[in-house]
Design a protein around this nucleic acid. Structure first.
Length: 403
DNA sequence: CGTCCACAGGAATGACGGGCGG
DNA sequence: CCGCCCGTCATTCCTGTGGACG
């Protein structure tokens, strides 16, 4: 088949999908207009924010819950609703959504904030205190409540400390007419404990906790989305409950569940099927895992890759740290690369364990010392394929495979 | 019952590169 | 724009540890 034919077919398929009606509905940043099983959280946050209806300042709010529990979606949803209703009764307010993972410096957060209340700030060149002054002036001029949403606020504090949070919470004292509410979101439960006590007490005026979804709730969420995302009757029986139960086992993460369903659909589509089966879900789980492994490996430093390669070429049985280090040293010698110390390899092994590519268990063998038992936790072929991407070790993998 | 193995893993420190802030 | 600071990778030195073995 010529490339033109291939392209023709691909275009045909992408224009008229056999299974999807609207794939976007399954994407992680999609905000549905109903949020099942979060009624409690929605009403709690709404009642905390209710002073907005009187043009007054609501308390600061702190929200935490694990990933995929709907924190961001609920908050955005509630604020969009507030916007609708305040417009009707002419009690204006503004809100500013800032994802601190992407805007992870003091300056960028302030720039975002400034932008959302309609003042222009240059990309760089101003001192933070100058930006602060301008924001305060602008707020005073507006004289309406402002809600600042700091999503994934833990990553900001990790990078820049809680200085900015402190100054934001104290802004109200400098304002004559404006009033600012801070709404922090995090998935790190211990985060609030690490804050400066002053910030902690003022930021945590109100707290809302998002519990993980259970399997039944996930199933309900998936069903509602599936109706919009898929054409009628393309999902075979049990597909949704399978996605839900897999995700429920992995900490009730709705994002995972939706991804599983979407990828299963994409696989079915690629195979030219008009039905999505349970098999497709299992394949989807494999594929997602493979992608994750490949992605992690790609960003690994050279010596981590070499350690991983040492584990891969030394067979299936479990190995100790010492065994691994010896294989690794030989590997380095044959490549003409200076090996790192065993201490460092020990840390590398911990890191690989953390990301789940290997299993490393500390054991005591009495007279024969204390060590780790290490085994691979990822598919060997996926691993080698990902390692081969690195041209520095490409040839080793090639030679190994041909044997 | 004490020894001693084979590391785990903490602390201090350094090289280096990139991006922030003044 | 440039210096400084910070995160990452790495080294050196070190103390800790559970149980098989003599």
């Amino acid at each position: 088949m010529s490339i033109d034919d291939i392209f023709k077919r691909l275009i045909e398929r992408s224009l008229s999908s056999a299974v999807f009606k609207d794939r976007e509905v399954l994407r992680p940043d999609y905000i549905p207009n109903e949020l099942p099983h979060r009624d409690e959280e929605i009403s709690k946050i709404s009642s905390i924010l209710a002073p907005i209806f009187r043009g007054e300042r609501p308390s600061n709010i702190f929200i935490y819950g694990l990933t995929g529990t709907g924190k961001t979606a609920v908050v955005k949803y509630v604020l969009i609703k507030f916007e609708e209703y305040t417009a009707k009764i002419e009690k204006p307010f503004k809100y500013s959504y800032i994802n601190c993972r992407y805007d992870d410096t003091t300056y960028r957060v302030l720039a975002r904030l400034a932008d959302s209340i309609g003042i222009k700030i240059p990309f760089t060149g101003l001192s933070t205190s100058e930006v602060f002054r301008r924001i305060i002036n602008a707020l005073d001029g507006l004289g309406i409540p402002l809600v600042v949403i700091l999503d994934e606020v833990d990553s900001l504090v990790k990078k820049c400390g809680d200085e900015l949070l402190y100054r934001l919470t104290r802004i109200n004292e400098e304002l004559k007419r404006g009033k600012i509410t801070i709404l922090g979101i995090t998935n790190d439960v211990n985060f609030i404990e690490r804050l400066d006590p002053r910030v902690k007490s003022s930021l945590g005026e109100e707290e809302v906790i998002f519990p993980p979804y259970d399997a039944l709730q996930l199933e309900d969420i998936l069903s509602r989305r599936a109706v919009k995302a898929f054409k009628p009757d393309v999902l075979e029986d049990g597909v949704i409950s399978l996605c839900a139960s897999i995700a429920a086992k992995e900490h009730g993460d709705a994002r995972r569940a939706l991804e599983l369903l979407r990828v299963a659909g994409e696989i079915a589509e690629r195979e030219g099927k008009s039905k999505v089966s349970k098999e497709h879900v299992f394949s989807a789980r494999m594929e997602i895992e493979k992608d994750r492994v490949a992605e992690v490996i790609k960003t690994l430093p050279l010596h981590s890759k070499l350690v991983l390669l040492s584990l891969a070429i030394s067979g299936n049985e479990s190995k100790t740290t010492g065994d691994t280090y010896n294989t690794y040293r030989e590997l380095c010698r044959s490549l003409g690369i200076d090996p790192v110390t065993q201490r460092r390899v020990s840390d590398i092994l911990s890191e690989l364990d953390m990301v789940g590519i290997i299993n490393a268990k500390v054991i005591n063998r009495g007279r024969y010392g204390k060590t780790r038992l290490i085994s691979l936790n990822a598919d060997l072929n996926t691993l080698l394929k990902a390692l081969k991407e690195d041209e520095r070790i490409e040839n080793i993998v090639k030679n190994f495979r041909s044997r």
